[in-house]
Design a protein around this nucleic acid. Structure first.
Lengths: 202, 202
DNA sequence: CTATATATGTACCGAGTGGTACGGATATAG
DNA sequence: CTATATCCGTACCACTCGGTACATATATAG
């Protein structure tokens, strides 16, 4: 066992509280006072356990992706067809973004979409994560194209970007108060744009 | 003519500078120091001419909508068919969001998507403006439906929300560095989802 | 000219920011 | 027990935030 006085709080538990605050107010909008009050610990305890506000945010972000988008993307990409991938992803987004047990919207979108100089690195980190998601989709669509599951003239790059655009737009909508039904309707509507494989058109 | 010492700067000119700063860094991310330096005036001059940071932002926002989205929406809604409306709107968004003479992205989306308590009223104001845009679209689509330009089973509400979702997603993409070509491709892709009038399907 | 009204620059305000020094409390190791 | 290591709470740091008091400069009105 560890030497010295043991900490009086559960790290993952207070990290969840911090995540919620960042989720609601973004990186810059969440002050240390907001955070420590929600987490129920003092500032020195926070710094002792997490290092800095920036590191705390990154840990909260990892926890966020682990709980939400991570499994969502994994499940989606595992679907047998490109269309099913997008269907799963967009309906999953609709559900997740409007989950009443979470703040509305997406941390990776609204966490630091625009910010002051101090948060520039956070902004770029979030941007990087979003483009990683886009890349995963693109790779999946490349494969679908090779498997004949997408038309030969399909553009995996454009399809991935379109899908991410809809997902990110849904995040903005959710933050603005859109209902779950509304988001699901958007997901369904977005799917109408999906190209059909050649076998089906012939 | 006005009595007293005349101001030594052009109000609209410095307002444009302020707009640019808000556009790049959002409401909270733009400090008074950032603003006054960009505008080339002192703090008391700023307060004398604009009242407060919040009022300055609202004036900049009006100027923003006047220069950009305002005419864009007007032109789009004036199109003869619902499909043409959306085509005009989304391609217009793609062009505007990636206009190299402006900061990338959309002030109404990224200006205060999430924020601290202090900016809550700004956040809600932007939210209100976005939903006004959505309402304009919905009304236009209602009309299109009545005119037989949209199928009888079309859902103007869902169509408007879908269109706004894509537009807002494009704003996030633009902020993240998406190129003009990429945004135009998204707009084109999004149009594939558009329902065709019954005459054409029969 | 004087009186008045507005703008400007300097220098400042209180409040809040992220972050920490330090002493006392609480655990294990010997 | 003592020694050591870690944690906690108070109280504080320098800095930045949005906003302003005040004296001075510059215009018009009479």
């Amino acid at each position: 066992m560890q030497k010295g006085r043991p900490r009086e709080f559960d790290v993952e538990q207070v990290l969840d509280k911090a995540l919620k605050v960042f989720w609601e107010h973004g990186y810059e909008g969440a002050s240390l006072t907001d955070l420590t009050e929600a987490m129920g610990i003092s500032r020195p305890s926070l710094y002792g356990a997490f290092g800095s506000k920036e590191e705390l945010f990154k840990l909260a972000l990892e926890r966020y992706e682990q709980k939400g988008p991570g499994s969502l993307y994994r499940d989606a990409i595992a679907q047998p067809t490109a269309r099913a991938v997008v269907e799963k992803l967009l309906t999953g987004c609709a559900m997740f973004l409007s989950d009443p047990s979470n703040p509305p919207g997406c941390l990776a979108v609204q966490g630091a979409l625009s910010c002051g100089e101090a948060a520039e690195s956070i902004k770029q980190e979030l941007c990087r994560r979003r483009s990683m998601g886009e890349k995963e989709l693109r790779d999946r669509f490349e494969r679908a194209k090779a498997e004949g599951d997408l038309p030969a003239d399909a553009d995996p790059d454009a399809l991935a970007r379109y899908t991410m655009t809809v997902a990110q737009g849904m995040a903005v909508q959710a933050t603005s108060g859109a209902s779950r039904e509304a988001l699901l309707a958007v997901a369904e509507m977005a799917l109408q744009a999906w190209p059909v494989a050649k076998e089906k058109t012939r």
